[in-house]
Design a protein around this nucleic acid. Structure first.
Lengths: 352, 352
DNA sequence: GCTTGGCACTCGCTGGTTGGGAGTGCTAAC
DNA sequence: GTTAGCACTCCCAACCAGCGAGTGCCAAGC
């Protein structure tokens, strides 16, 4: 976000907006500065290049377009893109064929929880030829379905947690003594009776609270169960929180071609933390959000845009998915793809 | 492998070998063609550049070095590298400091099975500044420790398999009717009694065989247990069979810098199948193996070398780890790193 | 016979120059 | 407000020359 005030639409004449739109659409296709002659033909307004040049000068004053050098055409600026995205863009519906492709891929194949997310990510990257990304359902936002404990050797217990998003989490707990199977079953039963169907977040709070309450309590069994449950739910910061596919597609785009930039981006993809943090911001947004790299501050996203949509299970947002690609991407196509994929993924997760 | 016959050492004079060694060592450091003057100083033999040129001409005739163009120095060919690796290379021991770094990273941190492999991969890539790769323990080569079944809803059963490599595998089975917990426990008990401590491969064979034998049998419980076990062990083709770290390090190397080549390589890294297939070949080799990309046929490894070592749990090879980098890599350092890491990883896995 | 200095030659790389093309801004006329 | 005309700017590709590094070969020396 630069210091400049945002450009309100009202100061840009309708004709100028039309030119801006035509310019950006063409720029998205070609990736090169657009000259006045080209644009004159393109906009369909039957005006001479000279007139177009005047309009362009105005747009340049407003900071919506820029020219790389005196004798090149104009390219859109970030502000220009923002205006385009916010008010000029016309989104077309997806072809029925593509929708059913997504549907069959996600609903048809009997793939389980985590694979499903991976499929969605691959699908996004495959259709858009950019990088697809899907965050794993946030643990706190899924609901508790079932927990089980298995005795291992050496005072270790294997805890298995099943959530409503079809996920199975394993965790090895180190306990202060060996437990036998009956004890563990009892503990699991107690927990399942108490918490089944509740939000993980609520479960977590209640577990921690009751753990406090019963700390000095006489019912040792219950407190043991709670303690183990506490270990499971508290360290639910899963190591891998999103799945990214088709990174290499980004190598095709000339604007990201500086090896250095690409490397930073790829590093961020393997590190994942920053990407995740970014996506989390759109968790609570409603529907498709578009985000232009430079607007963040994350320097590594310069030249990129991110198109995201939250996905829901049982009316509740549990994660975000989207596409990362060059700012010069075909939003008209990408937006509906992301939108539909989010909806279908939600449905597919619910089914499990 | 080209049509040329391998160059036996005997036809290359000892002096020539010495020059070849010096040339490759220098080339590894600089990555540029080495001229006769430079090499004359480098080899420590106190000979004039002209003499060196004669020797070089011989080496070129033998196909051990080549010059990119008339007035450039020489660079080693694949054959040259092969000879260097097989008979000229002197491997130095790792510094104690580095060994203890690896040790503390793998043995110290209490990370579990899969994380341990990821740590090893990251470690390899971190130390060598190239890409690290570790195959997951091959299922057939680990031993069966424990299996458990949990009833889920809708005629589904969650199977949990624990192996001696500290791995926990989940699998959701679709059964033809609902089972209650007691039945499942009984089945698990039966399987655990029968198979605990045996090789997964043996388990698999026995399960399939007994399944056949008991097909027409009256003991329905046993056959049900076997059937479920069969589902678990047979589809043990895990989707993700190796973990790769530090891919982006490869972007630093000029010789791989053609974006296209890099992309192919990265695609192979995400696809993993080919990489895995390659590494599997070294499963049965004893100790460190070095493999030069062009020698395969896999075109995507052109310009790369792979240094691998198998790692063992309880005297049995269960997987392979290694490093992928440019053929011009510092073998003297990389070889002991890979070697030690394999040994320590084995020890760390055994500990679990 | 191996080694060496000398010498002509090759080739890639760098930097400067040049011409053409694309596109602009400005101005004056419609 | 729109348009044609025109001078101007700037990038880019091509060409050229000069240099430096390095070679191959030859003839002389040990």
């Amino acid at each position: 976000m630069s210091g400049k005030p945002p450009v309100s639409e009202s100061v840009v004449s309708e004709r100028a907006q039309r030119f801006l739109k035509a310019l950006i659409e063409r720029y998205i296709r070609e990736g090169q500065p657009i000259g006045s002659r080209t644009l004159a033909k393109d906009a369909g307004l039957d005006l001479s290049p000279a007139t177009v040049r005047n309009v362009m000068a105005d747009l340049e004053d407003l900071g919506l377009v820029a020219s790389p050098h005196t004798s090149a055409g104009r390219i859109p600026t970030i502000t220009g893109f923002r205006m385009f995205i916010d008010s000029l863009l016309t989104v077309e519906d997806l072809k029925e064929r593509e929708i059913s492709q997504i549907r069959s891929e996600l609903l048809g194949g009997g793939s389980a929880g985590p694979q499903l997310l991976a499929s969605a990510s691959r699908l996004l990257s495959g259709i858009t030829h950019m990088a697809g990304v899907v965050t794993l359902p946030r643990h706190e936002r899924t609901t508790f379905r079932q927990i089980e404990f298995l005795p291992l050797s050496d005072r270790r217990v294997l805890a298995i947690l099943v959530t409503n998003a079809g996920e199975v989490h394993n965790r090895i707990l180190h306990t202060h003594r060996d437990f036998d199977r009956a004890e563990l079953d009892q503990a699991a039963n107690f927990l399942n009776r108490s918490f089944a169907g509740q939000d993980m977040e609520a479960v977590r709070e209640r577990v921690l609270k009751e753990l406090d309450d019963t700390r000095a309590n006489f019912d040792q069994r219950m407190s043991q169960a709670l303690e183990m449950a506490g270990q499971v739910v508290s360290v639910s910061e899963e190591k891998e929180d999103c799945v990214i596919a088709g990174q290499t597609n980004l190598m095709e785009f000339a604007e990201l071609a500086s090896l250095d930039q690409l490397r930073k981006l790829f590093d961020a993809f393997t590190e994942k933390r920053e990407i995740l943090h970014l996506l989390d911001q759109f968790q609570h947004a409603d529907g498709v959000q578009i985000f232009i790299g430079e607007e963040s501050g994350y320097q590594l996203l310069n030249g990129c845009s991110v198109v995201t949509a939250p996905y829901q299970v049982n009316e509740k947002v549990v994660g975000v998915l989207g596409v990362i690609g060059p700012t010069r991407m075909d939003y008209q196509r990408v937006i509906p793809v992301v939108d539909i994929t989010a909806k279908i993924l939600g449905a597919a997760l619910k089914k499990q």
